[in-house]
Design a protein around this nucleic acid. Structure first.
Lengths: 249, 249
DNA sequence: ATAAATATTGCAGTTTTTTGCACATTAGTT
DNA sequence: AACTAATGTGCAAAAAACTGCAATATTTAT
């Protein structure tokens, strides 16, 4: 085997497993560890991988970190995410909106879940991209500065051309009379579109968003198939909704 | 498991649980507590977490925080970014590829710059979205797991419908005979499309990518209007290129 | 095609890095 | 104050990396 081929194999190995040891490569490629070390040194210099003691790791290390300290009501959101996970199955096509509740969900998806997920939120896309088996598709468009989501006609048009099994809607008010409402006009339009593109609509929110009406209508309660909060299904705060026929978990 | 990898896991764990004990990590990562302590000490020194009695806690105060010290050759990249900034003007439409050099550039754009920037890299979009006056447009598509960029026919088609004044191309090899070459097939296609969509093409790279030929052709040297490296224009390493008519800054 | 020049590879010996353990010390708690 | 758990230090074993060198292999020039 030629040197170039061998080095390509080293790069491939790193890009598949994110890490590889010199001894493993030495055995696999039938050359001495010295040679592997020299290869790694050279590839490191070219920036194709990062040399470490014992072998090499991918240069594409996690660049971004989330600071969960500043996630408001983190514990509640974990609870909601765990409930939401019971709804997903292998092979599903899912749409996710933005917000920290959905971010938590993205982070907690089982490591073996095989699904295709559409999103228009940058943080959620970053999180999903780290998942080994989820196929993430980002819906492009103009980015809203503070919320880190794309909005606009491009997004809406894209959503009108896809069909999903499930959609997870976060960061919105929830009230008996007004249904689901949103704070921003652009985002509300996008949410309307994602609901239309999906077979089942799941609303996720911490209990503080209950009985809240925001400025822009997204949809009625009837269009929501399942609503998930941090509260127990029997919590008195939820009884009005149960009576109105909302399915809660 | 490699040391670097293990330390990354420690940082991840802190980021998820915001506080974590040495004993827990020791068990989870199958190393002695001594080793964990040494890791924590080191990571604390690098500012990625805060060492406390019993383990470590998170330090960051922004929701998304990126870790600069894993950027390879950071100083050189800052230098390149500063040179690149001299090319941008208010009102421009710009396309940016991925890579840490471009990320550095995204971070260092003057706070008053008014421009429209297209990108297909998630980290770069996140960075640009924090800029007060830059309008960021993300080009959607299927996300590549490790490089955090979108690729595929959607991206290429989108690029074929826009026109930009400038495009910044990073992470590619640069050689006299082969011109610009890329490591991945999909990404190379996208780069070809962005070059076609742009009036002026700017190549950015640290000097270690010079005289390197990677697997997939992107474009010839003639198609590059300006090439930027960390080296001085008179550096002997660049003379072949100057003689071949490449404009360097 | 052949010889010279160059690059690549493996080996031996040395140096560095990493890790876990024992023991003394410190911090936090009751 | 006393007790427990966590920490720091020095040390030794093991693994990995570096160095120089000789043997091959490959490329280039003649």
């Amino acid at each position: 085997m030629k040197k170039k081929d061998r080095q390509q194999k080293v790069v491939d190995e790193v890009s598949i497993n994110r890490q590889v040891s010199s001894s493993f490569l030495s055995e696999k490629l039938n050359v001495s560890e010295d040679t592997i070390r020299r290869d790694i040194k050279e590839l490191d210099k070219r920036g194709l991988l990062t040399k470490v003691h014992g072998g090499a790791i991918s240069t594409m290390q996690k660049l971004y970190h989330y600071n969960e300290d500043i996630i408001y009501k983190r514990e509640e959101k974990v609870l909601i995410a765990k409930k939401a996970i019971t709804l997903v199955e292998d092979g599903m096509v899912i749409i996710m909106s933005g917000g920290t509740t959905n971010l938590m969900l993205a982070k907690l998806f089982p490591k073996t879940l095989k699904a295709t997920i559409y999103t228009y939120s940058l943080p959620i896309a970053m999180q999903l991209a780290e998942h080994p088996t989820i196929e993430t598709i980002f819906i492009g468009g103009r980015i809203q500065r503070n919320s880190m989501v794309t909005t606009g006609i491009d997004v809406i048009q894209y959503l009108s051309n896809i069909t999903a099994n499930l959609c997870f809607i976060g960061v919105s008010g929830f009230s008996l009379e007004q249904g689901i409402t949103g704070e921003g006009y652009e985002v509300a339009l996008v949410k309307k579109a994602m609901i239309k593109a999906s077979e089942r609509n799941v609303y996720l929110s911490t209990s503080n968003k209950l009985n809240i009406r925001l400025n822009y209508d997204i949809c009625s309660l009837q269009e929501i198939d399942i609503a998930i909060t941090d509260l127990d299904v029997n919590d008195p705060m939820l009884q009005h909704y149960v009576e109105a026929g909302v399915v809660l978990i």
